[in-house]
């Protein structure tokens, strides 16, 4: 055990280590993984002066309750998160998008995410966790990554390889915008669906189902009618692909998705909207809006410039 470590008093519901993800492995069935909401992941690291590809703690809905032992250190939380910081006998409510200093014995209690799904905790320094294929990201379905590919557990100790401390508090004004319209590009099996099915897809409202996780987001609502075949020969998938199985309810592939699939693809979520898509909690309403490839590329460039601009302000 090193001198600086975190102890998990309560792990939360779906708490994992995540970083930028792993690439070049789709062909053997290993997905990208990585932080679901990339922008919030990057901002969290920047707030504690970490390299931007450092592993962070990702949580969903209820987050972890953590006790810190060691020398002074910084941490920051991003997302739309309600959390408490306990120092000796004093408990304060924490603000997202601001770094804090904690010291020996302090506790961080991440109570919940507000009307969103994922939040991120970055801690100044480097956690002593395993890399697998150049990434610490945990994929709990395939048990890949750090922590033996499993969620964080109660009583667990997480050591640091090194710590860095900034005396100055870093802060940024940022509000996670919510969107109802998710922009999509036309899918490779768009013609499998009836005229009415296509209309349903673009005009009607869908609801995010409870059966959503890091692998996929299931939607409920009007059924999308298929007139050709409800199965195709299995072929490669990427995150954001919207498949429609025989029951007519769309499923959106998320970061831990299976690498091949056999349901017709009606569309793919534009990269610009992915970070906001994954934050839509069960019960949220979604409407799809079609855009073309060149608009999608321009919109992503703008989104990326905005992200870089935010990072440069910290």
């Amino acid at each position: 055990m090193s001198n600086n470590y975190l102890e998990i008093i309560r792990p939360g519901i779906n708490t994992t280590f995540q970083d930028k993800g792993r690439d070049h492995l789709y062909h053997i069935g290993i997905p990208f993984s990585g932080a679901m909401d990339n922008r919030n992941y990057l901002i969290a690291n920047k707030l504690v002066n970490n390299n931007l590809d450092t592993a962070v703690i990702e949580f969903a809905y209820q987050g972890p309750h953590i006790k810190y032992t060691g020398e002074k250190i910084n941490f920051a939380i991003t997302g739309d998160v309600f959390f408490l910081i306990k120092k000796k006998d004093n408990e304060i409510k924490g603000n997202c998008y601001q770094s804090y200093q904690i010291e020996n014995g302090d506790e961080i209690n991440v109570v919940s995410t507000n009307k969103s799904v994922f939040g991120y905790m970055a801690i100044g320094g480097e956690l002593d966790i395993k890399f697998q294929w150049n990434s610490c990201s945990i994929n709990t379905k395939a048990n890949i990554g750090s922590n033996d590919g499993k969620k964080l557990d109660v009583g667990q100790i997480i050591n640091f390889k090194k710590i860095n401390l900034n005396k100055d508090i870093k802060k940024i004004n940022y509000i996670n915008t919510k969107i109802e319209n998710i922009r999509v590009l036309r899918g490779t099996n768009f013609d499998y669906f009836s005229e009415q099915g296509k209309q349903t897809f673009y005009k009607k409202e869908f609801i995010v189902s409870k059966l959503s996780d890091r692998m996929g987001m299931r939607l409920e609502g009007p059924k999308i009618e298929n007139i050709v075949n409800t199965n195709i020969k299995s072929e490669g998938l990427i995150k954001g692909v919207i498949q429609v199985p025989a029951d007519g309810n769309p499923i959106i592939m998320l970061s831990d998705h299976g690498t091949v699939g056999g349901y017709p693809k009606i569309g793919t979520v534009a990269s610009v909207d992915y970070d906001r898509l994954v934050q839509m909690s069960p019960g949220s309403k979604i409407k799809f809006k079609e855009i073309n490839l060149s608009d999608a590329e321009i919109l992503f460039k703008l989104y990326e410039m905005e992200t870089q601009n935010l990072l440069s302000q910290i």
């Binding site: 690439d23 492995l25 789709y26 990208f32 020969k233 091949v260 990326e304």
Partner: peptide, 22 residues
């Protein structure tokens, strides 16, 4: 290019939109 997914009769070539484009 960050991923290749060969299947029966398709090949998906994924790329990082920050580095290249369609």
């Amino acid at each position: 290019i960050n991923n290749l997914t060969p299947s029966y009769n398709k090949l998906i070539v994924s790329y990082d939109l920050r580095q290249t484009n369609f």
